[in-house]
Simulated assay, not measured.
Amino acid sequence: MNSGSPSAAFAGPFALGTLSTPDGPAFPALVTPDSQVLDLRVAFAEERLTTRRLLDRWETALPRLRTLAGTSGLARKPLADFRVHAPVEPRQVFQSGANYRQHVIDLHVAHRDPADERSEEERRAEAAEIMDRRAAEGLPYVFTGLPSAVTGPYDDVVLPAWAEKPDWELELAVVIGRPAHRVSAGEALTYVAGYTIANDLTDRAAVFRRDMPRIGTDWLRGKNAPGFTPLGPWIVPAESLAEPDDLRITLRLNGETMQDESTKDMIFDVARLVAYVSRTARLLPGDLVLTGSPAGNGMHWGRLLRDGDVMDGSITGLGAQRTHCVAERS
């Protein structure tokens, strides 16, 4: 029912999704690895239940979900009968930039001063030292995104007519499970309900304001067009992932691998990112913290998105998404 084929390949005994039939509203679902679906409105006897409402009471909902996943005889249906939506409608989206060591080193070397006559090896060594110092003493770079940019993991991505350089950025997305404000890195992971996949699309031409170069970046224009954040397919509970800081992120464009890196290359890990965001903002259940994208974006390859492209993104234990790019029609 989507442009891609829904898959239930994920870690653990169950995951959460948001599904619908052609003639019905979206509903929260428990999905099992054998591609079976349990309507959680029925299981929880709440007609207006949503995934975010489950996350609002995650500490009590999680044990019940474990029980449901292990209970036989419940009325389940095949996943293929449903459309898969973004797994949650977040109230807030926080996006991390320049958070992959190798990616930032590549950028440092690529954007060298023309007067710098040092070898590439020397410049890489300098960049690596800067990254090590940043990891030890620096702070993450985080900005806010719009929930309205979120779309489903198999939905078409419309490339706006004004977008000159649309690019991909596959990322691990953290889903918050209880309110968090001014929490430490040591306790930050206890506020995480689970993880999902996000493709944080960016129009590179719109990121820097040409009319106001001293102002800097324009993330509203660069990242927040409708559908510029394909999300999902599933929220996999944190307890099902042994190590979120060592997951493989892979993006293929028309079958060709463009990004292929482990989250262990992150400069600031999940715990430090969540803690940092919480120093300023009050994180709420269902909020997303995107953790940055590794090397291999379109600008690196000199090949940006265009009409007809197909992006396949996957992260270890979280499943896979497939999105088709469609040029905006006038």
Rank of each mutant, 00 (worst) to 15 (best):
A80F: 00
A45L: 05
S20M: 03
R204M: 11
T217R: 11
G227V: 03
P87Q: 02
F14Y: 14
S5P: 02
L38V: 06
L304G: 04
E59I: 14
R123T: 13
H300N: 11
T144A: 12
E261R: 14
D132P: 05
F82T: 07
S119R: 11
R209V: 02
T316P: 08
S262N: 08
I249E: 09
M258K: 15
V150P: 05
L304R: 10
S278L: 08
D245W: 03
R64D: 11
A9S: 15
V42K: 07
R214A: 10
L139I: 10
R83P: 00
G232R: 04
G186Q: 07
Q259S: 13
G152C: 13
A26S: 14
T32M: 01
L74M: 08
D260I: 06
E120F: 11
P90L: 11
D287S: 06
G24H: 13
S330H: 08
A320C: 09
V192N: 08
A149W: 02
V142H: 05
D39N: 10
E239C: 02
G73Q: 00
G317W: 02
L16H: 08
L16T: 06
V93L: 11
G319C: 12
A61C: 15
V104A: 02
G145K: 13
A163K: 01
N2Q: 14
P25D: 12
R66M: 03
P244D: 07
E137Q: 10
I197G: 01
G319S: 12
G319E: 09
V150I: 15
T263K: 05
E137W: 01
L65W: 01
